[in-house]
Design a protein around this nucleic acid. Structure first.
Lengths: 194, 194
DNA sequence: ACCTGAACACCGTTCAAGT
DNA sequence: ACCTGAACACCGTTCAAGT
């Protein structure tokens, strides 16, 4: 109770900020808008977060943590590594389903050079978490460590690109067919390559 | 002579605006900065372009045209379609070589929903030009039209993603190894798939 | 024909002040 | 403990005015 009430305003800020950042990126995250969404004034945001940079870093950190948790859940639920790899794009698909939004950190990756360093750190952490998980799955299929690592980067980059493209066209079917094309080419599989 | 002098200021604006947009995107394109780079005041930009949106659209249009021209040159120069496909990522690599910049239109794709519609149109045209060229090359390798079209989207999305990722890490070697990984998987080849 | 200073409504941020 | 109005330097844009 106490905790809920205490976290209420802060939690609301984080929630709305995540939605806005997913749709408009860091530079599109407008504090006056955000405050209005939350029901307070822009100046009041500074009671909860020292700056826009810190707020965005908090948003990105929570997003990265959720993402890793989702992947862990997938690898516990799925029977084998190949299934995990095949289903990996689902996590990216869900953002598109949810109002043509986009993976927060892939989005911010475009603005990367202009992000405050605290935010850069969290965006990196998100990507690293995904890549580590992919690398682990690929090794489970029998791929050598070095090869698995490179392939993990490739899958992450390719799926991010597909999401970005599908969002631009506002066409989730395009996401599906690009992913299917990756599968056909063999990008989302484990051992079947050199 | 006359033409050169006439175009001089406008050309300078387009040139500098392209550089800035490649590094910071549309929302990062600051008119006061741009004007200073050109050697005029921000208000003077409005003599040459009616708005930031029109300026950015002009930048994107020229960029898209150059890109198609580069691809045409490649397909004339290269001996066969497979070579063209293998060399396609070079056009994206060059932006990274040039100061860790990024394909203007892939960059803008992240901001897509917030772009003025004139700019959206040009970004689409860029992507469509690339995809059409890729589709043609893929068909030349014997791929069926429908399959080639989907694969063209996939290649474009994957290479864009690789560029974005490599830029975030400021590591052109990462771009190369991701592309190599695509090749190994078979994504950048023609007929070798179902 | 080309450029400018001053002004507008907007942004992130600060801070003294309110409850 | 939590919020606010007013102010700051900044943004895109307009416009009357300069040469």
């Amino acid at each position: 109770m106490k905790i809920e009430a205490e976290a209420s305003s802060r939690a609301k800020i984080l929630f709305e900020a995540t939605r806005i950042a997913q749709a408009h990126g860091y530079s599109g995250l407008n504090l006056r808008n955000l405050a209005q969404q939350v029901g307070i004034k822009a100046a009041s945001l500074y009671y909860h977060f020292p700056s826009k940079a810190d707020l965005a870093a908090a948003v990105a950190r929570r997003y990265a943590e959720d993402s890793v948790a989702t992947l862990e859940a997938l690898s516990l639920e799925a029977s084998d590594a190949e299934t995990c790899l095949r289903r990996y794009p689902e996590t990216f698909r869900r953002s598109l389903e949810n109002g043509n939004r986009i993976c927060l950190c892939s989005f911010m990756a475009a603005e990367y050079d202009d992000l405050p360093s605290e935010v850069q750190t969290e965006v990196q952490a998100f990507a690293d978490g995904n890549i580590a998980w992919l690398g682990k799955m690929l090794q489970l299929t029998g791929m050598k460590r070095q090869h698995a690592q490179t392939r993990a980067y490739a899958i992450f980059a390719a799926v991010s690109g597909a999401q970005l493209m599908a969002r631009g066209r506002a066409d989730i079917g395009l996401f599906d067919s690009i992913i299917e094309s990756y599968r056909v080419a063999g990008l989302l599989r484990g051992e079947n390559t050199t």
